[in-house]
Design a protein around this nucleic acid. Structure first.
Lengths: 238, 238
DNA sequence: TTAAATGTTAATATTTGGTTAATGTATTAT
DNA sequence: ATAATACATTAACCAAATATTAACATTTAA
């Protein structure tokens, strides 16, 4: 599996320790965002979607519990693990009350943390799946099921799309009649923007054009230097 | 909180400690069944439905891990908490691999245990409702009894399925005609998602395909990089 | 008119899946 | 205890699907 790695928000004021832990987690195929205090942590949390938060309890300005409460207010589902230096009962209870899923006393073993992370993400993953977004689209006489990666023209046999074909077509449809910037597709789908990925994308545009030929009202236009535009002509009935 | 009717299976060989813990839990409105060893624990587990299992790790005859694995084979959802005297890393890892939801080092604070119990039951109670119930399925000309792990084709002799075959087929059926994500099966059934478990799953898909060959309208399709899809063709009569 | 950008097809590389058999592991029967 | 068994995992090999790169043609904008 490539880009569907789980995203972790790590909030830890000890920069040294934070960096080491981040590296370790990244080695284990997680995408890690490191914030160095509660304030920054909350800003990052609001800006992105995470599968798990690991919060240090003892931090200046805003401690882990306060941060956890704020996070819970915005999102009641995301799993939270506390890192705490003290194994005081009060702290543990306070943590659970703030909505913790688990806690770990420092110093802890990294393998144990890894296991906890896996266990927690696993138990949550089912629910998270519910947040399925939109995956069915109509475009001209075509119908795209982007979950099963099927493109159907009228009543014909569905064409199977590859992951990249599917993602690209979906992104075009989401920008129907509007510019889909090159850069956007490259950074979101190819996760890199350089000469080669750009050429690769052009190859995929060619493939999509071939698929879409059956309906002459549907076309992918190029906007030189900017990106592409999926247009549907004569949208009479709708 | 109306934790009142939650049922807990407590397996603890130290009778004194077990009795005290049981009383404490009952004072907090749980229904508690106490078993004094792994054998008895498993018998009681089979006879009744529990919302949570608390297992001592160190027990004569059958230790907590072994018991947990047996429990997991019958029921992959019920939350399990381990009680362990040692805080050895190996034990903790072993526990998580056996499907633990949490563990506690003895001696522990009863309030902390209570918090954990509440946290775990709360997080599980949502999912548990939907699943768990149904165990008989029809798929094409087949009938699956996932409790007895029997797969029957028309009037022929039932095929006995292994636990993994059974779980996997059930999960496919629950997603009939839709995508069953690889990741879901791996995290739920294999409890880990890596190269080897993924290959293991492919082997099981091959086994299921062999079983399902008798009905040519039933097929397991692959969606490259995503997962599998169980389809039933020509669903004419309905 | 010329460099950069795009269109297109084909060749090549990489990743993922299908399948069978061998190996490992624990349980049950002898 | 040892053999038989059931089940699960790992290995090995091949095939299919997907992605990238190369090569060359065409278009666009300055």
């Amino acid at each position: 599996m490539e880009n569907n790695n789980k995203r972790i928000l790590l909030v830890e004021d000890d920069l040294n320790f934070g960096a080491v832990l981040k590296d370790y987690l990244m080695l284990n195929d997680f995408e890690v965002t490191l914030a160095k205090n509660g304030m920054e942590g909350f800003e990052k949390f609001k800006k992105d979607v995470y599968d798990l938060c690991i919060l240090d309890v003892m931090m200046p300005y805003k401690d882990g519990y306060t941060l956890a409460k704020e996070i819970r207010e915005k999102n009641s589902e995301v799993p939270i693990i506390f890192l705490t230096a003290k194994s005081m009962k009060e702290d543990v209870l306070k943590g659970y009350k703030a909505g913790a899923d688990d806690y770990l006393n420092k110093p802890f073993d990294s393998e144990v943390l890894l296991m906890k992370i896996k266990a927690i993400i696993q138990r949550k993953s089912a629910d998270t799946k519910a947040e399925q977004v939109q995956f069915e689209f109509n475009i001209g006489k075509f119908h795209l099921n982007s979950k099963l990666r099927f493109l159907t023209f009228e009543n014909e046999e569905p064409i199977k799309l590859s992951p990249k074909e599917n993602e690209l077509l979906k992104m075009l449809i989401l920008h129907e009649n509007d510019l889909m910037p090159r850069e956007l597709a490259l950074t979101k789908i190819w996760r890199d923007d350089n000469y080669f990925t750009s050429r690769s994308m052009d190859v995929y545009i060619a493939k999509l054009r071939k698929y879409l030929k059956s309906d002459e009202d549907v076309e992918i236009l190029n906007i030189h230097g900017e990106g592409f535009r999926l247009v549907v002509k004569s949208k009479v009935s709708e």
